[in-house]
Write a protein that binds this DNA or RNA. Structure first.
Lengths: 188, 188, 188, 188
DNA sequence: GAGTAAGCGAGACGGTACGTCGAGTCTTGGT
DNA sequence: ACCAAGACTCGACGTACCGTCTCGCTTACTC
């Protein structure tokens, strides 16, 4: 089975890098296919050979962004949770709000993008779910609520503040979130 | 001292109706200013005289869409809270997700829109804050957390589910949210 | 009857001038819509508002290029005919051949263009028909053939040479054409 | 000293056949190299190994089209001429106008194509020239005009009608053309 | 009969142009 | 002032085609 000229693998990287750069600035709408191609030193057709549309390009871009966040759970779920939520808050704070908002918007518009974005965030929040479950087992949390809900109440407010009320995501805020969910530490 | 021809008040309604219809179909992106104007039998200029941009138009549209939720606080904060959160969840579910997402994106990009959108949402969540404060006074909630945070944990997860995980906002979910924050009802 | 903002009449001229310049260089194929628009300092959409396609633009261009050939018939049909045919030959010689050929091709393909091009050429050859008829009335030509046919035999060979044999259209050639149709002048 | 794998001679035929088919439909512009290759079940490279460009391919195609039209001159030049012109008119009528027009356009654009097309047509009209010369020798035509011009006046109007006025080429028209050039038959 | 040069299929690639669409601004004439 | 109509700019989108290129495989001539 002949295969024809193989794709230049370097191009894909250059293209995604260029797209990432564009996305960082103008957000989803500000990302121009023409500019991405030009920036990557590539013909527009070459880009379209890889991704059928702007949305698909962003899907790939996001998939690429998923960096493994190595997390080592300790024996102290409370500390773990605080660390995790603080880290997520920090990550969100560093990223331009417009980008995250545009991403959410694109996810709502384009099913394929939504899929990809959900996968990305699921991965990002996976550790939280695990630690919450562990905390509940350890009796640190009342078991009248599902762990998934607790995760929502830990992470959800971050996005809520970011996208809705546009208030700052301080480490302090992250800490009080955990405090509210786990309750005050008992002094022995 | 107004001078010149007064605005045709009927136009505003037709325009918003047309925009609503457009929005229901194609979402935020599918809403074309040209089409809205044409559908309303109105010149584009006339539309722009009322709202400076597509985003502003949608802001107004949303503002119109929100029904005044006359809320009469009862003696039972728990019941009140459940009713409120359920109502908010229902409202969000009815509105196309793209709309809310794009609104958040526009809010992040343009300060003017952000202001307007924040005001809208603040108004919407105001009752929740009041009831939460009341519940805390009544000793229903532990006072180790600020009431504002509790509101975030009641309302935030709704937006989180909507925009991030894209899971459905059922009344059941709203109820468990309240349950998680207030704790299980004590039987006397 | 409201009319809206009137077209900027200056634009049309700039556009046609730019197109003419482009045409002079690269020929029909070398004429790029984008470049024409840019050269005229005008948005591409503005160009497309006037002409639906490249072909239509060129039709208009040709129509503009044709000078009104004010023709005053004298008493001498032979002289008139010679003048007319020579003028037509000269006109064809001045215009790039590719242009005329592509015009004919576009005319064959698209009815709309065909219509326009036929009208242009009909106008151009109208005077010939008139003079031929007059010559026939004056007994200068045998009446065994319809005047329309004689016109074809006077003008047709010009296009034939231009498009088919690609031989030059000299004034000498034009003269012999007339000579062949009218026969040699009788010396009294 | 030929080395390496010899060319597959069958390919050339399939390619030309495919190209002919394409040309018959969309004309010169509608002929797409990619489609021709695909239709012939051949890689584009293989096509380009034979002809350096689209123009060259069409050149070859046209050269192939030149069928020898065996013509046996009789003793009656008038009858011969009528037969010839009628045959040419019929041939032109059968061929799609767009094809001929596009061919003329391509001939004007691409020198190499022009060369080939001229050769084709010269061959097609060669017999006419011969018979006209013979008629002139026989005193059937006045000798004040060159035979080449008479040919132009016999054949030119056909192309003129086809490409310019877009009027039908009837056998009747062909007959009157001859009649006009030779004059009415003298009854002895 | 093993090498090897060329032919071949498949398809990537750069480049250029096309025609369309949407947002927002601007310019008329008319109310 | 307001309104209708519509021209205008800017910038993006996705498609089509041409001609070049790079693979891996195949074929026949040559040594």
């Amino acid at each position: 089975m002949t295969r024809g000229r193989p794709r230049d693998t370097a191009i894909e990287g250059r293209l995604l890098a260029a797209a990432a750069e564009e996305l960082r600035h103008g957000g989803y709408d500000g990302l121009s296919i023409d500019r991405v191609a030009e920036r990557a030193g590539v013909a527009k057709t070459t880009l379209y050979r890889r991704w059928a549309s702007k949305a698909e390009l962003v899907v790939a871009l996001i998939a690429m962004m998923r960096e493994e966040i190595p997390f080592e759970p300790s024996d102290d779920p409370r500390a773990d949770l605080t660390a995790l939520v603080t880290a997520i808050a920090a990550g969100l704070s560093e990223t331009p709000t417009t980008l995250i908002a545009d991403l959410a918007a694109a996810a709502a518009r384009e099913p394929r993008v939504g899929e990809s974005v959900r996968a990305l965030w699921a991965e990002r929040h996976g550790a939280v779910t695990a630690v919450v479950a562990k905390a509940q087992e350890a009796g640190l949390v009342l078991d009248h609520v599902a762990p998934a809900l607790l995760v929502d109440q830990l992470v959800g407010p971050l996005y809520y503040r970011l996208l809705v009320t546009q208030e700052p995501l301080t480490p302090e805020y992250a800490r009080t979130l955990v405090l509210s969910v786990l309750g005050p530490e008992e002094s022995p």
